[in-house]
Design a binder for these strands. Structure first.
Lengths: 351, 351
DNA sequence: CTGAAAGCGCTAACAT
DNA sequence: ATGTTAGCGCTTTCAG
């Protein structure tokens, strides 16, 4: 019952036609009489024939597949992008495969991806890539179309679709300032993609625009994980002069901070306000729902796929940088600064 | 500057050797003098040569790639499996590609996967598959090795790696019973993989073992989403005789229920206990940390890859069903039933 | 409308 | 140690 290796030749033989006719009958391209077509299709079904994707690709040169490289499937943001990309890719009638590099691209095993990729896909998307400089160079030299999503770390000749981190963060912090907050904590993520830095720039600028002096003690180094957000929250709240608001460089960290706040017995937003970044699905499910900055995932995925398809077709890339403003989503985790909090001597009340 | 299509022939020509020698020099397989090797490698680098994966695969018949099909990347459980699989696959020195079918396999576009798959991968894993009967049949007829993870809906000749849902659920509910709970709510998920049903069976059995009569009013139909868990929580709590404990068929739903409980002003676990299923990463991060049943993700991924590799090599499958007990993880969302709760007339206290 | 030949890029298998 | 031949499964010519 070995069915492995049912090839077009077998089908053609059974149908009593040439291989070529079988190919045409099945693909629907080119001429073929209705009769032959039915005959061939019947034969194919009987034999349980599945076309060998590889062979087809080899000849045509096009695989109709777009590859997406991520380095962490645990991240909600990444999954939001990947899901949006899946949908967009389907719209242009291509397929999308995801490769999880499990960490930084470029050290050790990372090389494999660049090996694998060639020929397998028509184009490649890197979502929030973490990579060595070496690897980026390899990518730039690559012959196949590549688009990066939310990469800011280094200058690159590759096209990049990106959200506006600086203004987004600026909006968030300005909002807090308007609510009367003066001591605003910031929880950083890792440097990986350069996003955390930009968000910090927005934070710093908003503070300076408001004439508030930056207090380095209010900046905590996290790593984008919920746990680090919780640690950051505990740290900031145990300060001699704790902040009345915390801006985290990601929703996951904001959620961790919220947990820490609750553990301290403080209320959100009455005692302390919290803002995240990304608008992952669970941001709307926390209590209170989290105020955050939303990446326009769908629009960004759309732009990415469009740009990629253009380059795959050999048309010149439309734009080298495609920027999307972050949308400020005000929910219920932000509120007026607690009374008297602007005084240096104030302390947060316990509930 | 067209670099597309740098082939081995080009490299060989530049290095002044035959194609075969070039192939050997680059792959490291077979004999090749150190001198030629360096020469060829230099040529390859100069030309920016990348081997065409497709062609290589075509010849060898092996792609060294394992495909994973999922239908929702938003699901934490699925991502836990996929991440564990990524690691296991790497251990056997293969690569793993993920395909997101974006919903049920078998209707409409779903067919594409089965088309694409052939030849591209050496083997395929379906994680928590949702598929039509038709599609399952196609899969069973397929010539390439396939392993299913946590599929229970229908009998199938395909090998399935699965967690023990019935006993897991039984453990959870028995634990609640031991804590004095008599009215225990259950929040179902969809029927997709058959897991929710089995968890419900465990729930029903544990109740009956304890001599507690099943109250259908205590069972709420959710859909595995956090939102539905929240809805379920609200529904159960607004019952005339609300439960003192809720067992949800997934952590996501349990987390939703916890939110609902908190919104009602009740305390966990003092007023009401909660248990989930899956042990997704965020389960440990909720406050209180969620008591749940853990799939041994790593062990299951290991077994899956081993079984797949065995079949890829042509060895007979070791086992047709590989079962893993669910590990009961007691955290802090479960506690003794509130005093007097066993009396039918009791009401939950407000805080 | 259908068929035969050629070849995609690479590598086993057999020479040399 | 290197080169030659053949062929993977399919589709794109180009001829019937």
């Amino acid at each position: 019952m070995k069915k492995a290796g049912v090839t077009l030749v077998d089908v053609a033989k059974l149908a009593g036609v040439s291989v070529m006719t079988a190919s045409r009958a099945l693909s629907g391209e080119g001429y073929a009489s209705e009769e032959t077509r039915t005959k061939v299709q019947a034969a194919a079904k009987q034999l349980g024939y599945t076309p060998n994707a590889l062979a087809r690709m080899m000849k045509g040169g096009k695989t109709n597949v777009i590859g997406v490289v991520v380095n962490d499937l645990t991240s909600s943001v990444i999954n939001c992008f990947v899901t949006a990309l899946s949908e967009e890719v389907r719209k242009v009638d291509m397929d999308l495969f995801i490769y999880n590099s499990l960490g930084d691209l470029g050290d050790g095993k990372g090389k494999r991806v660049s090996q694998m990729l060639h020929g397998l896909w028509d184009g490649l998307v890197y979502v929030l890539p973490r990579m060595t400089d070496d690897y980026l160079e390899t990518l730039e030299k690559s012959s196949s179309p590549i688009v990066l999503i939310n990469y800011f770390r280094h200058e690159t000749s590759l096209p990049v679709v990106r959200g506006d981190n600086v203004n987004g963060a600026h909006d968030a912090v300005s909002h807090l300032v308007e609510l009367g907050h003066r001591r605003i904590g910031f929880i950083r993520g890792n440097a990986y993609t350069g996003q955390s830095d930009l968000r910090e720039q927005g934070y710093v600028k908003a503070l300076s625009d408001a004439g508030i002096e930056l207090d380095p003690a209010l900046v905590y180094q996290g790593n984008f994980s919920e746990q680090s957000g919780m640690d950051g929250g505990h740290h900031l709240l145990s300060l001699a002069e704790p902040p009345t608001a915390i801006f985290a460089a990601s929703d996951a960290m904001a959620q961790g901070a919220m947990t820490a706040i609750r553990e301290k017995g403080l209320r959100i937003p009455e005692d302390i306000s919290v803002i995240g970044f990304d608008d992952i699905p669970s941001a709307a499910m926390t209590r209170p729902p989290l105020t955050t900055l939303r990446h326009p995932f769908d629009a960004m995925a759309h732009a990415t796929v469009q740009e990629l398809v253009r380059r795959i077709k050999g048309e010149p890339g439309r734009r080298h940088r495609i920027e999307f403003p972050s949308e400020f989503v005000v929910r219920e985790s932000t509120g007026p600064a607690p009374a008297g909090s602007s005084s240096k001597r104030s302390r947060l009340r316990r509930v």
